[in-house]
Computed example of a mutant assay.
Amino acid sequence: MEGLKQERITSGRTWIAPATCIYGLDYLTNGYECDPYVTNFLNKYNVHIMPVHNPDGYYYSWHSDPLWRKNRNRNPNDTCYGVDLGWNYDDGHWGDGKGTGDSCSKNYEGPTGFSELETQAVRDYINELQSTRNLTAFFTIHSYLQLWLYAYGWSGESVPEEPEVSRVAQIGVNATESVHNTQYRLTVSTITEMKEAIKAAAGEATTLSTSCITHQRQPVMEELE
Rank of each mutant, 00 (worst) to 15 (best):
109 E>T: 12
120 Q>D: 06
150 Y>R: 02
121 A>R: 02
99 G>D: 09
120 Q>F: 02
139 F>K: 04
91 D>Y: 04
90 D>M: 05
123 R>I: 02
143 S>V: 10
137 A>Y: 05
125 Y>Q: 05
135 L>C: 03
117 L>R: 11
92 G>D: 05
116 E>R: 03
91 D>F: 10
124 D>H: 00
99 G>L: 12
101 G>L: 12
121 A>G: 07
101 G>P: 06
146 Q>G: 01
117 L>I: 13
150 Y>D: 06
136 T>N: 13
133 R>W: 02
134 N>D: 14
148 W>T: 15
114 F>Q: 04
130 Q>H: 07
114 F>L: 12
132 T>I: 01
131 S>H: 04
117 L>W: 09
92 G>L: 07
141 I>Y: 14
104 C>R: 01
102 D>C: 09
94 W>T: 10
96 D>Q: 13
139 F>V: 15
146 Q>V: 02
100 T>I: 08
94 W>Y: 10
127 N>W: 00
108 Y>G: 08
94 W>L: 04
121 A>W: 01
125 Y>W: 04
109 E>L: 15
144 Y>I: 10
112 T>G: 05
125 Y>N: 01
125 Y>K: 00
123 R>T: 00
101 G>I: 12
90 D>E: 06
139 F>W: 08
148 W>V: 15
113 G>I: 12
117 L>T: 14
97 G>C: 07
117 L>Y: 00
93 H>R: 07
93 H>S: 13
126 I>H: 02
131 S>Q: 13
103 S>P: 15
125 Y>T: 00
123 R>K: 14
124 D>Q: 03
109 E>C: 14
124 D>L: 09
109 E>P: 10
127 N>C: 11
138 F>D: 01
92 G>Y: 12
130 Q>S: 06
98 K>L: 11
91 D>C: 09
92 G>Q: 03
107 N>F: 13
147 L>W: 06
146 Q>I: 01
137 A>S: 10
90 D>G: 12
132 T>R: 10
114 F>V: 10
138 F>Q: 09
128 E>D: 12
101 G>W: 08
127 N>R: 06
93 H>G: 02
130 Q>V: 09
126 I>Q: 12
108 Y>S: 07
101 G>M: 09
92 G>R: 03
125 Y>H: 11
115 S>Q: 07
110 G>L: 08
136 T>K: 14
122 V>R: 03
127 N>E: 13
140 T>S: 12
137 A>C: 05
121 A>C: 11
133 R>P: 01
126 I>R: 08
115 S>F: 05
124 D>G: 00
121 A>E: 04
99 G>P: 06
141 I>F: 13
115 S>W: 04
112 T>N: 14
106 K>E: 15
105 S>E: 00
106 K>W: 10
122 V>I: 15
105 S>T: 07
147 L>I: 06
140 T>V: 10
100 T>A: 06
110 G>H: 04
103 S>L: 01
148 W>C: 12
118 E>T: 08
101 G>D: 15
122 V>K: 02
144 Y>F: 13
125 Y>C: 02
128 E>V: 09
105 S>L: 05
143 S>T: 15
95 G>P: 05
140 T>N: 10
96 D>Y: 04
126 I>S: 11
100 T>L: 07
108 Y>D: 08
132 T>G: 04
147 L>E: 08
112 T>W: 01
95 G>R: 01
145 L>D: 15
132 T>V: 08
124 D>Y: 00
123 R>L: 10
128 E>H: 08
104 C>L: 02
115 S>A: 14
136 T>V: 13
141 I>E: 05
136 T>F: 00
95 G>V: 07
145 L>E: 14
